[in-house]
Design a protein around this nucleic acid. Structure first.
Lengths: 223, 223
DNA sequence: ATCTTGATTTTTGTATACATTTTTAATTAA
DNA sequence: TTAATTAAAAATGTATACAAAAATCAAGAT
């Protein structure tokens, strides 16, 4: 078991809901909890803030941001805008060697049986990133996408959604690789687009339904 | 004159070339230079690193990243992918009130005569951001774009490029506002796209030319 | 009852000191 | 000469202590 940096630990704990949405993250509490001084806590918090995994609450304090269907939709629109671009830029450098590595990873993901939705999401991103990284021609783009996926993973971990979607998703990944191997770039880009759109739609629908039940629960006893 | 945070100061100094590309940014030297302890320096450095304005150099040190035409092109491709999306999402919330504020800003920019290319770039981004911010419906997108523009500004400050382009650019901004006021959304999006593409092309051409003269200077005396 | 005002408490910001790691330089062997 | 190894140095990581700021709460005025 690798020892995690405090930053990694915190990120994981936020994703796992130990620090839920709305939670105020103050240095003192955290330095007590994790048994370190406030300096490394500061560092970790600042990094998380820069990545959008924490947001300002008031003038000088940080909190775990709330989740919303609207934001999830925004994140998926960003994915839709950036990921086809990333794949397109990587296309010239996508050798069979690279595609082989992607296949290995995909197979490995499938063999992992009992994964949480968030973990599965993280591995899916690894797969996508492997393709986009080819040739190392889009470091800026990759960094932005990494950030976006950090955010998305919080939404995935939120609830075990659409269990049957994982099959569809996996199938599409294999199809994507097949198209890339055959040099059918345009079709690959189209598939990637609809693949992301579909996943986004599913997530947003799920969250929207959830928000409505929650708000109706909140308002009906009061009214 | 407002007192800048160390982070802001450092960002400005990097943009102004006080710490040039390739420069190693170590905490000790900087804490001497800015007359503060290493703690606030750490904070500032970490933030700059998270924003991509500093990059790792070796295992634990940071440096000012090098500039390249390839990266500039990447950044403009990202702008092209994200900014039309941002405008599209802001469209429903774009009231005449908002457009009026944008006009004021534009006029104000034009009245500022002697600005560096980087300063002018920063104000241009302010103008674009004002449009995209309407309705506050894309906070994630705005944050990503802010990051991208931080990077772009380094390139603009690099050299006083294409002095005559500022006129073209300003004209296009007024045209964009006109189209938005007239409700010609599709045309506005198209104009925005070509506006960004044009600026990007100009910058990349400029940098490419510059890189070639530099590399030929480097290699010819040796060979 | 609500909104100020001021004092109290909590929290964050920064300096200093020390521990650990990384980097650099020098030395030795191949 | 080059590469590997090791010792010196410099730099970063972390803890503690203190200063400044922010948030909280209670008392008083409207």
């Amino acid at each position: 078991m690798k020892t995690l940096s405090l930053y990694q630990q915190l990120r994981q704990d936020i994703r796992q809901g130990i620090w839920p949405a709305g939670q105020l993250m103050n240095q003192q509490k955290l330095s007590d909890y994790y048994q370190v001084s406030r300096i490394p806590v500061r560092d970790a918090l600042q990094q998380l803030k820069a990545e959008g995994l924490l947001v300002m609450a008031g003038k000088a304090s940080l909190k775990v941001p709330e989740l919303s269907a609207a934001e999830a939709e925004e994140l998926y629109q960003i994915r839709l805008a950036l990921e086809p671009l990333a794949l397109e830029r990587a296309l010239p450098a996508l050798s069979f060697h690279q595609l082989g590595r992607a296949e290995d990873l995909l197979q490995q993901i499938e063999q992992q049986q009992h994964l949480s939705a968030a973990d599965r999401g993280a591995m899916n991103w690894q797969f996508h990133a492997l393709l986009y990284q080819a040739g190392d021609q889009s470091p800026q783009l990759l960094q932005l996408l990494h950030r976006v996926h950090q955010q998305v993973e919080r939404y995935l971990g939120f609830q075990e959604l659409a269990l049957n979607y994982t099959d569809t998703s996996a199938t599409e990944h294999w199809q994507l690789l097949q198209l890339l191997r055959d040099g059918q770039s345009q079709q690959a880009l189209t598939l990637l687009h609809s693949h992301i759109a579909q996943a986004g739609q599913l997530l947003v629908q799920h969250l929207t339904a959830l928000e409505q039940t929650t708000t109706s629960q909140q308002s009906s006893p009061a009214d």
